[in-house]
Nucleic acid binder design. Structure first.
Length: 555
RNA sequence: GUCCCAGUAGCUCAGCAGGAUAGAGCAACAGCCUUCUAAGCUGUGGGUCGCAGGUUCGAAUCCUGCCUGGGACGCCA
């Protein structure tokens, strides 16, 4: 807890004591004390609506209640400068913000650790994200999922959760057979032979690339194998190629995983049938029309779901249930799946499965990432995985740059559709918000460097010299960082981090324009300002790291 | 037909475990570089928070219905 949070806690407990002392409510009736930061400075540094909340309990007019509270308030603690009653009954607190200067040594000392908290209390959370089929290139939607997922992991870890990142490899279904057939067809074509693509084949350029490599390396050798052997070969080769490429692209995108979990392993280790049998023992399974059904309607699903088809093969749901059972068996307190919006209809049956396995529905949390629309030259770019003409993650990284992409994909709330404006993301201009933030960081680096060149060492500084309004605003913003991360973690809203670093950057730029940091005629004040700058730099860098954006020394 | 998401300034979006005069960026307009990077700053204008009810001292925020846009509703994955 930093000084700002301590300050707020002190204030809350003072308010509570005053309410009790005024006999307005008993301990049991006491509502949660809400402190907010008013938008208007005339309403003080903090305000509470407690008087309105108590109106019904105390059966008095809010303004009268507010007066009773203020009369009982111990104003000598908590740096309270003055207290006002305003509006319908708000109590406004004006604080002596000198206490904020204590933040600076804290931040300089904690460095990369600043912003951490134990909010999560070590809760074991597994986050599964991306999990794109290894049948082609990652596209725009995956890129958003990867950005949001990775940022969420970083944020939760920083807020004290024990996070495990996982990628589920769909390497067992029909799509992999199609992959093998597609590679085979392209291989034949590469050898100059007439061969049409399978009906649900993958038309991406990457498949053509695989085939050309194979044609070059093996010539017509592979045709000597039996059709079955060829299938197996193309399947394995294609899968390995696609997986390596996925991992490499994601790593370049600054997204890594603790575990890559193979669907095939569920088959190989015979995990699926036992999972179904477990549900059968619990009475959630029945046979009908030659198929095996899961009675998911017991848990609010629209209809029951088939687990084993008439032909004896599993539906997709079966390995998924086995997979989630496996996750739970690994001892996670909570599972978070990050899915594209097109899979949201799958949520009720998955929640049903979790409950049928004997867990609370909210043990599994599904975060839905809404669709991304790509705009170029003011026009919407149509995407199609079938024709392979979708814009890929790799192309975007080359064309747009990773920093801008990572920033853009988390800057909106995940449940809003995102319009990705290529021209804006590419533009090296002040229209591009990622530069605004990076520029703030680079500006500070320049100042620190120049101070160093002038021989100014701010190891010993007196933070209390920071008394200007702009400096105070900056420090206030710095103090919010830990709580912002905690809120972003609890609410699973990584976009709050982009908002925060944008706001902090705005404060920095404003400060920069209002005050000259390095003034050799006043070395003591200069040192204090340099320490503040370093604190801002650390906080900005920590924030950018959470969303996978680089913090440049210069621009 | 059922379900999910969205509808807030000209545009793109925050705000939504209820709070005071609803915010930001872009666009428009007016200013600020002999001074640490102007990729910056300062200011102005701009809103029936989709519509209609309801709950409340108080609703953009919660509830109900409706309208519009997007998506999902397979013994596909």
């Amino acid at each position: 807890m930093n000084v700002m949070q301590q300050m707020q806690e002190t204030l809350k407990s003072e308010i509570k004591q005053a309410v009790l002392a005024a006999e307005l409510a008993s301990e049991a009736e006491m509502p949660a004390i809400v402190l907010e930061q008013p938008k208007d400075k005339a309403h003080g540094d903090y305000a509470t609506n407690i008087a309105m909340q108590l109106a019904r309990i105390a059966k008095k007019a809010p303004r009268q209640i507010a007066e009773d509270i203020v009369a009982q308030l111990n104003q000598t603690t908590g740096s309270i400068k003055s207290v006002d009653i305003a509006g319908p009954g708000f109590i406004n607190f004006f604080i002596d913000n000198q206490y904020l200067t204590k933040l600076i040594p804290t931040i300089l000392e904690q460095k990369e650790e600043y912003g951490s908290s134990d909010t999560g209390k070590g809760e074991k959370i597994q986050i599964e994200f991306v999990s794109a089929n290894p049948t082609g290139d990652l596209h725009l939607g995956h890129a958003r999922g990867a950005s949001v997922g990775d940022s969420m992991c970083n944020i939760l870890a920083k807020a004290g959760y024990n996070v495990s990142r996982e990628y589920y490899i769909n390497d067992a279904g029909n799509q992999i057979n199609n992959l093998a057939l597609s590679v085979q067809a392209r291989y034949m074509q590469a050898l100059g032979k007439e061969q049409s693509m399978p009906e649900d084949g993958y038309h991406g350029a990457d498949i053509i690339g695989i085939a050309e490599t194979l044609a070059k390396e093996y010539g017509e050798q592979l045709l000597e194998k039996s059709d079955q052997e060829q299938q197996a070969f193309f399947r394995e080769y294609g899968l390995k190629f696609e997986l390596d490429k996925l991992a490499k692209d994601l790593e370049q995108f600054r997204v890594t995983f603790d575990h890559w979990f193979s669907e095939t392993s569920l088959y190989e280790e015979n995990k699926i049938t036992p999972a179904i049998e477990l549900l059968r023992e619990k009475g959630y399974i029945y046979e009908e029309d030659g198929a095996t059904w899961f009675r998911s309607t017991d848990f609010g699903d629209d209809k029951d779901r088939v687990l084993v088809k008439q032909d004896g093969s599993y539906t997709y749901l079966s390995p998924d249930i086995a997979y989630h059972k496996n996750k739970l068996d690994r001892g996670f307190d909570k599972l978070i799946n990050i899915w594209g919006a097109d899979h949201h209809g799958y949520i009720p049956r998955m929640h049903a499965a979790i409950q049928a396995l004997g867990y609370d529905a909210d043990t599994l949390e599904v975060e839905i990432i809404q669709m991304v629309n790509l705009f170029e030259n003011g026009e919407k770019v149509k995407m199609s995985k079938r024709t392979g003409k979708a814009v890929t993650l790799r192309e975007l990284m080359e064309e747009v740059g990773i920093d801008a992409m990572r920033y853009f994909f988390v800057m909106r709330s995940a449940d809003s559709h995102l319009d990705f404006d290529m021209d804006l993301a590419k533009s090296q201009s002040n229209d591009n918000p990622v530069y605004y933030v990076q520029y703030a960081h680079a500006r500070i680096c320049t100042m620190l460097k120049q101070a160093g060149e002038k021989g100014i060492d701010f190891a010993d500084y007196e933070a209390s010299l920071l008394q200007s309004e702009k400096a105070e605003e900056l420090m206030k913003k710095l103090g919010e960082f830990t709580q912002v991360i905690a809120d972003a973690a609890i609410n699973r809203t990584p976009h709050r981090i982009t908002q925060y670093i944008f706001d902090l950057s705005a404060n920095l730029h404003s400060f920069y324009n209002a005050e000259k940091v390095i003034n050799e005629d006043n070395v003591e004040a200069t040192k204090a300002r340099l320490a503040l700058m370093e604190a801002v730099r650390i906080t900005l860098a920590n924030g950018m790291k959470l969303i996978g954006v680089n913090a440049p020394q210069s621009m």
